[in-house]
Write a protein that binds this DNA or RNA. Structure first.
Lengths: 236, 236
DNA sequence: AAAATTCAACTTGTTATCCAGTTTCTTAAT
DNA sequence: ATTAAGAAACTGGATAACAAGTTGAATTTT
């Protein structure tokens, strides 16, 4: 009979609803940067949702830097005016889950930069970490085993060596998705993995010798196969 | 007298502690991808922290794709092996708040790519949005007002037009930090803002005419001043 | 004996309650 | 009238209790 047609909105939907309502409230009340929002309790009552839902919405907006919660005091509008606030919330609401193609595209972008930066500012400890990951990968592949994880760590070590926090954290965010997709599509077959060892060595050497442009180029070579692979047939 | 020296660890610290303990537990128990962690209650008891702290840690690890919580069932290790898991958690724990320099560096990187992509795949609606933001910015500046937010929306519209979800969400993440820093350091003085109008127009035209390389170059020109500005004196 | 079923013990997610500071309004003293 | 002190009401955060649903073993049926 399915009488529950109306019932039980998805949690994601109610979260977005609350975000919209908070946005509308800020607009309606003309709340300016630094001003205080009504308390969580009042909002939950006004919106007809649980306080938990309100908290989730606030935390999400806090993640994107639009609100700022202060314990035992209140939740405040960040130093972003009405125009920016509305534009950003629209953007946040229309965000879709990333597709594999966009992931790879962005990953390559980040990694080329990371390689160049790492070759410029890397310190001795960074280099050791990269070398360690490189050796671990080689060992795995030469034993005929799967080296997806060691491959990832090699790239993460380079991101870390880049000294760019933002870039590094972005790399960490996309890493799991990359791994699972790689394993799903079996991107790294045996031939590829074996060739990749030398490519890794090339990248490592360039970083070691502090040659930014070369590091970038070697990384580009490394991704060439991946790029073609992803854009040939596996791109859905 | 300050007898509370030992007391009240920072919330961030206890969160990281719990993450470390979860990592150690996974290692100690040799939990493999797909296997189930002990329940939140058991973990909170074992670790001597509240269940809330455990939930926070799990949610953070879930954000980075390392765990997966399933309602009324349990929390499971993602399809990432021990090596990758440990490496990523180390990376997550050693993440520092991004500095302004790394933000700008990364922003420029993302925006050059976004401009190129937008010029390739933009549709009519995307273009309208960009135009709208462009006009709003011009209007503000010509009235002698501050246009930081409208400037941001212009760039966000391009990121959206790029069709790259990952890139777009990264742009949204760094936007508020960019805005507040800009306003703090008064990056956009009147002269700069006025010149920026023409630069925006140049970028828009290139995207409109579907000329990727030109779009990238115009974006680069646009950032030239910003780049120099940030790397001259304001770089702490 | 094997398969289907029931039920009790656990699981996460949600709601309600409590807590430790903050803020603000009242009140009293100067 | 002004200011300072104090208490009461509020606030976000932490904790505890509850609900909804899954799992798996014990039990019944075929």
């Amino acid at each position: 009979m399915k009488l529950k047609v109306i019932a039980k909105k998805d949690n994601q939907e109610v979260l977005n609803d609350v975000i919209v309502k908070i946005r509308d409230l800020i607009n309606y009340k003309n709340l300016e940067p630094g001003e205080k929002l009504p308390s969580e309790r009042m909002l939950s009552e006004k919106f007809g949702v649980s306080r938990r839902n309100v908290r989730e919405a606030i935390q999400k907006l806090e993640f994107y830097g639009l609100l700022k919660s202060i314990p035992q005091s209140g939740t405040f509008v960040a130093q972003i005016g009405s125009v920016g606030m509305n534009g950003m919330i629209d953007g946040i609401l229309s965000l879709k889950d990333p597709d594999f193609k966009s992931l790879v595209q962005t990953r390559i972008l980040l990694e080329l930069k990371a390689a160049r930066l790492a070759a410029t500012v890397r310190n001795t400890k960074d280099l050791q970490q990269i070398k360690k990951a490189l050796d671990a990968y080689s060992e795995k592949i030469l034993k005929g085993e799967d080296g997806v994880q060691e491959d990832l760590l090699f790239h993460l070590a380079i991101a870390q060596a880049s000294g760019n926090n933002t870039l590094n954290s972005f790399m960490l965010m996309i890493s799991p998705e990359i791994i699972t997709n790689f394993e799903k599509y079996h991107v790294c077959d045996e031939n590829y993995s074996f060739l990749a060892i030398q490519e890794h060595i090339n990248i490592y050497e360039a970083i070691k010798n502090k040659k930014p442009q070369e590091a970038k180029q070697k990384m580009k070579d490394h991704f060439k196969m991946l790029y073609q692979y992803c854009y040939s047939d596996k791109d859905k």
